[in-house]
């Protein structure tokens, strides 16, 4: 009993003791902030299938950071502006040319990132400073003023998501319908991307721009396997994100590891655990469980068979009048269209 108590105390101390250092307290606050912020915005990216766009935005803040550094402007502002420019540039490319979405993203992402790296290596050589922290994150080295800025940004983003929740839900679920219903979907999309850019600049010192995408996408993807509601998904995602960043922070403290990659790998481990254990916990077949990730849920397997609420046999139907085409277009369960004769026995499901 005594031994058990001792080891429990030891375990708690493992977490509490480092908090004697002020830098560790700042890092912990930062981990909680960044973990929840990235998880909320990442949930939108995942349900809208825009994870890659998150990557574009996050990598595109790099030249902005460099230019801001050159001009002695606030690097948060520089990074934000450059992330927005990339999003607008991408929208322009997609609207004005026939380039496909993924190719356009590849072009914008690599151009901005290339320019950013070029500028940063130049600055580092000339000014003898280290900007690697922005690329790969150094959560243990965050100073108080940067932490306050990050907290301010997080507050703005979370408030905006709270205020625009129902509009963002409509945009994400059915953008075409939302536009038809009179919602300014374009403005909402760019607002969402601006919030994503803010999330990236608020997180870059903790996990680095190269890996903010991990903290946005991995917890959200993990949560998407476990729930049927966006709000619940966001909550779970925040839990997973905060867990990842806090555990990652302590690992990086004790093992002297780079914080960004460590946090990323912890969230990847949680993802792997849910992928492997999820089907057992939810008692569903692995195929349909993971189907949610690739967008191909097997209807019957998802959570027990869907009971057919309609009678199996159709009421008799008069034959189509002679001389008139009596074909009907049928959409099968995979969404493919096919032409079938319109006969009384033709019950499609």
């Amino acid at each position: 009993m005594q031994e058990l108590w001792q080891s429990l105390v030891g375990f708690v101390n493992l977490w509490v003791e480092p908090l004697g250092y002020e830098f560790m307290v700042r890092a912990l606050i930062s981990a909680v902030l960044v973990g929840s912020l990235c998880a909320v915005m990442g949930s939108y990216l995942v349900v809208r299938r825009l994870s890659l766009l998150g990557l574009v935005v996050s990598n595109s803040v790099v030249p902005g950071i460099a230019v801001a550094f050159l001009l002695y402007v606030n690097i948060f502002v520089g990074g934000f502006i450059s992330g927005i420019l990339a999003t607008v540039g991408l929208g322009w490319l997609q609207g004005k040319t026939r380039i496909k979405e993924d190719a356009a993203m590849g072009v914008v992402l690599s151009t901005f990132f290339g320019l950013g790296i070029l500028l940063i290596t130049k600055i580092q050589a000339e000014r003898k400073v280290n900007l690697n922290n922005f690329l790969f994150g150094n959560i243990l080295g965050i100073n108080a003023s940067d932490l306050i800025t990050s907290a301010g940004i997080a507050a703005v983003v979370l408030l905006a998501v709270w205020a625009l929740y129902k509009e963002f839900l409509l945009l994400s679920f059915d953008a075409q319908w939302a536009a038809a219903a009179g919602l300014p979907t374009r403005a909402l999309h760019y607002a969402m991307m601006a919030l994503t850019a803010l999330t990236v600049v608020a997180s870059m010192q903790a996990v680095g721009v190269a890996l903010t995408i991990a903290l946005m996408v991995i917890p959200a993807a993990t949560a998407s396997l476990l729930t049927n509601r966006l709000a619940t998904m966001m909550g779970l995602s925040v839990g997973l994100g905060v867990t990842s960043s806090v555990v990652g922070l302590y690992l990086s403290y004790y093992l002297n590891l780079s914080s960004g990659p460590t946090i990323t790998l912890v969230s990847a481990l949680l993802f792997a655990a849910v992928v492997l254990a999820g089907p057992l916990l939810l008692k569903v077949p692995t195929g349909s469980f993971l189907g949610r990730l690739k967008g191909m849920v097997v209807l019957e397997g998802a959570s027990g068979a869907v009971p057919p609420s309609e009678p199996a046999t159709p009421a008799p139907q008069p034959a189509a009048p002679a001389g008139k085409p009596a074909m009907r277009i049928v959409r099968d369960s995979d969404g493919r269209l096919s032409l079938q004769p319109d006969q009384p026995s033709g019950v499609e499901r």
Binding site: V47, R49, K166, E167, L169, L170, S172, F173, D174, Q176, W177, A180, A181, L183, S224, T227, N228, R229, L230, T232, M233, G291, R292, G295, M296, V297, R331, G335
Partner: peptide
Amino acid sequence: YIPQRAGIDWDFPALVREVVAMGCV
């Protein structure tokens, strides 16, 4: 406006009740 069903992501995490409630917005 009730668009063709094909344009919607069926894996979206939304309950039937939530989808119907979108009509209020």
